[in-house]
Write a protein that binds this DNA or RNA. Sequence first.
RNA 1: GCCCGGGUGGCGGAAUAGGUAGACGCAAGGGACUUAAAAUCCCUCGCCCGUAUCGGGCGUGCCGGUUCGACUCCGGCCCCGGGCACCA
Length: 819
Amino acid sequence: MQDSYNPHKLEPLVQQEWEQQRTFETVEDEKQEKFYCLSMFPYPSGHLHMGHVRNYTIGDVISRYQRMRGKNVMQPMGWDAFGLPAENAAIRNRVPPAKWTYGNIDYMRAQLKRLGFAYDWSRELATCDPEYYRWEQWFFTKLYEKGLVYRKKAMVNWDPVDQTVLANEQVIEGHGWRSGARIERKEVTQWFLKITAYAEELLKDLGQLDGWPEQVKTMQANWIGRSEGVEVIFDVDSQQALNVFTTRPDTLFGVTYIAVAPEHDLAVHASKSSAEIAVFLQECAKTRVSEAEISTLEKRGIDTGLYATHPLTQEKIPIWVANFVLIEYGSGAVMSVPAHDQRDWEFAEKFGLPIKPVVFPEQGSVCVDISQGAFLERGWLQNSGQFDGMSSDRAFDAIADELEHRNKGQRQVNYRLRDWGISRQRYWGCPIPIINCDRCGVVPVPEQDLPVCLPEDVDFENAVLPLKSLPGFYEVKCPECHGAATRETDTFDTFFESSWYFARYCCADNDASMLDDRVRYWMPVDQYVGGIEHAVLHLLYARFFNKLMRDAGLCANDEPFINLLTQGMVLKDGTKMSKSKGNTVDPQNLIDKYGADTVRLFVMFAAPPAHNLEWSDSAVEGSYRFINKLWRLTKSHAEQGVTCSDGKLFECLNGDQASLRRKIHETIQKVTDGVGRRYAFNTAIAANMELVNEVIGFDDPSPPGRAVCQEALEAVVLMLAPILPHVCHILWQRLGHEVPVNSAAWPDVDARALIKDMVEMVVQVNGKKRATIQVPTGMGSDGIEHIAQHNENVVRFIENRKIVKVIVVPGRVVNIVVN
RNA sequence: GCCCGGGUGGCGGAAUAGGUAGACGCAAGGGACUUAAAAUCCCUCGCCCGUAUCGGGCGUGCCGGUUCGACUCCGGCCCCGGGCACCA
């Protein structure tokens, strides 16, 4: 054993041993319980950042812990390799995206290896590899055959100068980030996946995800947004009708106007005969497509001059265009009831539209104050014809019945969830395997022609490279009629790749099919670890894709991830660390200075995994000091000869020895629960630090004393091995063991060691702490109460007062209530 | 704007089921060792008061409530972070 702790010498040696022994390569074994531990794969941006280090250390600690519990643990790693940053780098550095990406992968793989993560590298995959994306192209054609994909027009951000589609991120305050031009909305035909066909199941199955944080399930449920209501038909003229969905048919008589989105057919139609409306629509078109943007805009609107007919009263209802109505959501039109909806109320106030109350807080009354805002609650109807006097609940049904009877509406379940638009007008992505033929129409690329490979040797001369500018790519023969045809030049949303990679890891070497039987052994993932920012989009798409694969017979499980740990973000200066904000911290400097174990210890100790972690450069030093302390302690113990920690010596221990031994087993109990159940790694580390501090203060050269000391050090080394795998590998050997620590069994609690004679309790008077007392373990309430009431300091507060009540919580607290 | 989180010493955090607020660590200050430095070890460390190893008062973003007892539960507010469908 080296004299002093030297991670730079020790860590590469230990890593070399793991590599030579193939310690972390895993094969299916029906006799052994499996544990699939997965961390969200990184985008190869160039360097690991602190968020990666945190994410992957958490996953590695869980993997190594489960391995010590005897599970067959599979922990894979790969690369989410398609995406926008590669195109930006290509423009900046004149290097093809593929080259840049593969270079980054090589660098980051080396960084991950330097951190000592227990990955099965034989399963590594990169989503930009045709051997990977050919299967999602194949799967897309299967979904096409099943009718689960379709084309429709949708809005994109358009940069009129660069003549290119921009991502939301690329629009800075309404202008293209490169050209600076005011962006416009533009309609483009795109491919969609029918995720709404699975809305009900995606919502219902949240109920079986007991291992997911409530927070994430709530966000997904709200995102899916199931609501029950009525679709109401408002006739515009003899040819046209407007369908609007409402969850409040009881307010139908309070409708005073209808608002449509600026892209709605009626709005476009009205603009043809009114220059004023045309200008308004043009203004509305100069804003980004995102919902956040639209909902924070000042509410603006304009009268179209058109009217719709109220389905029950036959009144003429004016139709307005409003900038806050989303064309994407529902029918792009809403019925407005300003008396009972706050947003409608504000719009009506601003434009002088009538506000007609129809629901009142008390039965039979027509009193409600709507001067300061809308009345949102349910109540009793008036001003509603035959429905006057009904409660909102009764009126819901009565009005729905009446509409259905008159063929002017029907009950409907509505979802906020929209179908998933998967087309991207970008180069660095997976080509959509479709050929457009003038004669045969849309033709999916036949299986034998897959993969449709993305040309990788390209030059970004003009700052943007759509596949449209590569005739060698898009000029093809139609697979059906063999005439000249055009290949689809859009690529998939990169969420497409990340929606099924977890299944592919189970059989990454299969070049004959997308998935195989091994998926049935490994799936579902037992533990998924990743950032909270993925709570909705990625995690919902992955759940959806899993169900698509199940229905295609490719896997058996309904849900992909049993347990989910969403780690908080590593913030710098109070905001998310990200490349685009330029506030990243390079962990490489820390690894170079302190080694991998210190960095791992620090990220696990600094905060509980689910919390955000505000980065600070100090405090790493303390982690390094602790490892040194443990090193010196083990060294000086081992130099006096290692002892066998067998049970006999523990039978008659003196007070100090028994007390240290109790501390050992209390710590094992706490740490096992902390690591195995609660994800409380920071307090598990603190508990080990406490135990180490006690061992340092324990100086007993007798055989039982040394045996207890040996037991303590073994326990600490075993419990810290998942976090500090390198140094614990060496320390475990030094404590006299031949089996490597990563294959050793997690320590067990000896219940006999936990027994205590006396227990400390707090005495309160009227809820204020007045004393602490020692009472025999297992003493009854009467005895405890007696001791408490005779404590010197307690007496000062209770004498000459009447005791009203005494509460005794055994083992914790006594509260004496006096008046 | 809507949905979801969070707010505790100088700092990161602890308090698992409503029962001792501040574990563990960082920073800081004082001391020991040393020619010196590094390393290491010891002591102090929420605020205020007193008769100062002890005792008292206050204290977990703000206001109010429930309870013998609230960081924890309930109602209202403020601030910070994440997501909002083309960043990943």
